[in-house]
Design a protein around this nucleic acid. Structure first.
Lengths: 184, 184
DNA sequence: TAGAATTTTCAGAAATTTCTGAAACTTAAG
DNA sequence: CTTAAGTTTCAGAAATTTCTGAAAATTCTA
């Protein structure tokens, strides 16, 4: 497995960005390689192409499976496990988006919900509680919005994202429509 | 500076989540503390409340300033620098969102744009190039959408996030409206 | 069931990130 | 100008994360 310069650059970059996207360098590289390489690859090929240890590949694949970003395949007459990126680029983006929502929002929502249960003991705490409530409301709404977006089918999502400045016009439209509720 | 249990929990949690949100533990803690504490705090108070070194606080504040998440204040007759969280919770969320877009999307878009300039040398590279193009198109659109969202004022943003399943209906409406363009 | 092929695990090594604290620097006041 | 108050810097220590590679476990074949 020799990578072209292009592939090399792509893979290395995704390694660097990996940490910002929620996984480590080698996991990012493995994911990138599986994404541009249309043929399924086995663990040994990944290790060789990326020059990392076999054990590391095994752990990385485990993580990519936890993220539901890779798919397992088998070649007839070969006992090795082969992997590809799971689904289209859109599917991958959607999966990353959902996983990140889960990891970045849910734990915080859970904690804040708990904190809001106890009664403030003094002025100081009452103020803090208010802030916590604000943070909670906002994150909760964000979470639901992210959920709504996840559920849109690709066509609608595309439409929405392409709206650009048309979006605020559409929202006005909406408030008029629902405000008046005047058919005909 | 003694923190209530509640404040303590809030601060520690934001420390833990910090890494997922793009900053390190102590920066997360400092940000959390400045968020629930309505009075401005100086570097010594932060260091004491969070039990971290003075130097670390200085570096953390520098980072929070780079994120544009804190605001500098001065108290008359006191030479110390005092800090508060910059703006409302909504402002903070918007800022974090924008900063992350910049850090997570822009570098990748720049690289991919470059990669797309060179001509593929063989079949293999041509296929890879296609994938790269797909990734690029998607990220580019995401980036613009994120921009659009950033520019919405709070009222519209709220309206949009509250739509829930009404969103896809609104999008249908839109396609009919623009498709037919039939007034009255 | 033996053994060959493959994958997984995990202890410790290596790399990276974060944190400390003393020294250097800056600024304001006298 | 001198001193004191405050802030920043940064080399090295500490903590954390990632990676390796050999051994253990699993799975398939004959």
């Amino acid at each position: 497995m020799k990578l072209s310069n292009q592939a090399q650059a792509f893979v290395l970059h995704f390694g660097e960005m990996g940490s910002r996207w929620g996984f480590n360098r080698t996991v990012g590289q493995m994911f990138a390689l599986l994404t541009i390489h249309s043929e399924p690859l086995n663990a040994d090929q990944l290790a060789e192409a990326l020059k990392i240890s076999r054990g590391n590949v095994s752990m990385g694949l485990k993580e990519l499976q936890a993220w539901r970003l890779v798919e397992l395949h088998h070649q007839p007459g070969d006992r090795k496990d082969y992997f590809t990126a799971a689904g289209s680029i859109w599917d991958l983006a959607r999966t990353v988006f959902e996983e990140r929502r889960k990891r970045e929002l849910d734990p915080t929502l859970t904690l804040l919900r708990q904190l809001l249960l106890s009664d403030p003991r003094d002025e100081q705490e009452a103020l803090a509680q208010e802030k916590i409530q604000e943070v909670y409301s906002l994150l909760e709404m964000l979470d639901q919005f992210a959920n709504t977006l996840s559920r849109l089918d690709q066509k609608d999502l595309l439409k929405l994202m392409k709206l650009g400045s048309g979006l605020s016009k559409l929202l006005e439209l909406k408030s008029k429509a629902s405000g008046g509720s005047r058919k005909k």
